[in-house]
Simulated assay, not measured.
Amino acid sequence: MSESKYFDLHITGLGYLNRVREVSPKKGASFYACDIVALHGSADAPDKTRFDCRVSGQEAERLIKAAKSYVDEDRKVLIGFKLGDLYPDLFEYQKGEKAGQTGVSLKARLLRIAWVKVDGETVYTASADSTQEPESSAA
C-alpha cells in the first residue's frame, strides 16, 4: 500500500475569537466551531478578515472550550492561531438589506492555538515542544 502525500497550506496570525459553539449535525459526531476575526495590515488601522472555523485536535478543542466563557461574557479574547484547509463557501443572505444577494464565508480548520489573551492579559502560551511543526508529507 502506498503512502498518501499531501501539500499543506497553513494560515498563521492573530485575531479575535467570536461565536464559540458546539455544532451537532444530523449525521456524524458533534464538534466545536468558532469565528476568528484575523487582523492584518497596518497596526494603526488593521484590516480584518473573518474565518468560520471547525476546531480540530484535542488541545485546540480544550482551549476553545475554556475560552468560551470569556467570549460569552463579551470579553476581548485575542489568540495566536494556525488554520488549514481554507475554502470559500457561497451562501444567500436571507434577511436584512442584503436579502437575496450572494455572500461568501471563508471556512477553515483551526489546527493550533499558540497563545490566548483575555482583555490584554496572557492566560495561555503553548509549550515549546508543542510549537514544532509536524514533518511535511509533501513530495
Rank of each mutant, 00 (worst) to 15 (best):
Leu110Trp: 00
Ala29Tyr: 15
Cys53Pro: 04
Phe31Ile: 05
Ala138Lys: 05
Glu22Ile: 02
Leu111Lys: 04
Ala138Thr: 02
Leu63Met: 12
Pro46Thr: 02
Leu9Gly: 08
Ala108Ile: 00
Ala126Gln: 08
Asp35Thr: 01
Thr12His: 06
Thr131Ala: 14
Ser2Leu: 14
Asp47Ser: 14
Val123Tyr: 04
Ser24Asn: 11
Ala114Met: 10
Ser69Gln: 08
Ala66Ser: 09
Ile64Asn: 01
Gly28Leu: 08
Phe91Tyr: 15
Ile11Ala: 09
Asp72Glu: 15
Gly41Phe: 13
Arg21His: 14
Phe7Met: 12
Thr12Asn: 05
Glu121Ile: 00
Thr125Ile: 08
His40Arg: 11
Ser42Pro: 08
Glu97Met: 11
Lys65His: 10
Cys53Asp: 01
Pro46Gln: 08
Leu106Gly: 04
Ile11Tyr: 14
Asp74Gly: 00
Leu17Met: 07
Phe91Met: 05
Leu106Pro: 06
Gly103Thr: 04
Thr125Met: 07
Ala108Leu: 01
Leu110Pro: 02
Ala67Cys: 12
Ser42Phe: 11
Lys48His: 09
Pro88His: 10
Gly13Asn: 04
Ala139Gly: 07
Lys65Arg: 15
Gly80Tyr: 07
Gly57Ala: 10
Lys68Trp: 08
Trp115Ala: 09
His10Asp: 09
Ser2Ala: 11
Tyr70Glu: 06
Ile11Ser: 09
Val123Asn: 05
Pro88Glu: 07
Val55Ile: 06
Ile113Arg: 04
Glu3Pro: 08
Ser42Gly: 12
Phe81Trp: 15
Gly13Arg: 00
Thr125Leu: 13
Ser56His: 07
Asp129Ala: 09
Tyr70Asn: 07
Leu90Thr: 11
Ala33Gln: 09
Gly13Ala: 02
Lys5Gln: 07
Pro25Ser: 15
Leu39Cys: 00
Gly57Leu: 14
Ala139His: 11
Thr49Val: 07
Val104Phe: 02
Ser30Thr: 02
Asp119Gln: 08
Tyr6Trp: 15
Thr12Leu: 07
Thr12Ile: 05
Lys65Cys: 06
Asp35Phe: 03
Tyr6Gly: 13
Glu61Phe: 11
Gly13Trp: 06
Cys53His: 06
Ala60Phe: 08
Ile64Ser: 01
Ala138Val: 01
Tyr32Pro: 02
Ile79Thr: 02
Tyr16Val: 01
Ala67Ser: 10
Lys5Trp: 00
Ala138Leu: 05
Val77Ala: 03
Val123Ala: 03
Asp74Val: 03
Thr122Phe: 14
Val104Asn: 09
Gly120Phe: 13
Ser136Lys: 03
Gly96Glu: 10
Ser24Ile: 07
Ala126Met: 09
Ser4Ala: 15
Ser105Val: 03
Gly96Ala: 14
Leu90Pro: 08
Arg21Leu: 06
Arg19Met: 00
Ala126Ile: 08
Gly100Asn: 05
Ile113His: 06
Tyr93Cys: 05
Ser136Asn: 04
Leu78Cys: 12
Tyr124Asn: 10
Val118Met: 12
Val55Gln: 02
Phe91Trp: 11
Tyr93Leu: 05
Asp47Val: 02
